[in-house]
């Protein structure tokens, strides 16, 4: 699909293009590229459900109560960058945290972190 929007084309952020193409569906995801939900649930990637519950996602099966449930994310993190920072290096906000530094220790790539943040930011 070609977007003809004149001179603003090169400056459009990637997320707008994604929205224009349609919201990614977990079931219909491209096999070579995991979705934020898949990455969050994957025990070798985000493994978020090891410590968090995500009550808003019925497929998120977890009894974990080590971290707070991922709800009201936009209210708790009005600045998306703050949420991203929390995933990237949680020790910055809490030196006593048990949450791994997913970005700082390269557990996840920067792109994977963005996908996961987008996923949880909707709850």
């Amino acid at each position: 699909m070609i977007l003809r929007i004149g001179s603003s084309w090169p400056r459009l952020p990637a997320v707008v293009l994604t929205v224009a193409f349609g919201v990614p569906s977990p079931q219909a995801a491209d096999a070579s590229k995991a979705t934020g939900q898949q990455l969050a649930h994957d025990v070798y990637k985000g493994n978020c459900l090891a410590c968090h519950q995500i009550p808003g996602d019925p497929s998120a099966v977890s009894l974990a109560d080590i971290g707070p449930p991922l709800v009201n994310m936009r209210k708790r993190f009005p600045d998306r960058a703050a949420l991203r920072g929390q995933v990237w290096d949680p020790m910055a906000r809490n030196p006593q945290t048990v949450m791994p530094p997913f970005g700082k220790h390269k557990v996840l790539t920067e792109e994977e972190i963005d996908l996961i943040v987008d996923y949880i930011y909707q709850y």
């Binding site: 459900l49 090891a50 009894l63 974990a64 020790m91 048990v98 791994p100 530094p101 557990v107």
Partner: peptide
Amino acid sequence: LNAACAGCHLHNAGKIMR
């Protein structure tokens, strides 16, 4: 994963991991 034994077995003992 930057974890210490104490993080789980002291501060989070009794909590549920998955």
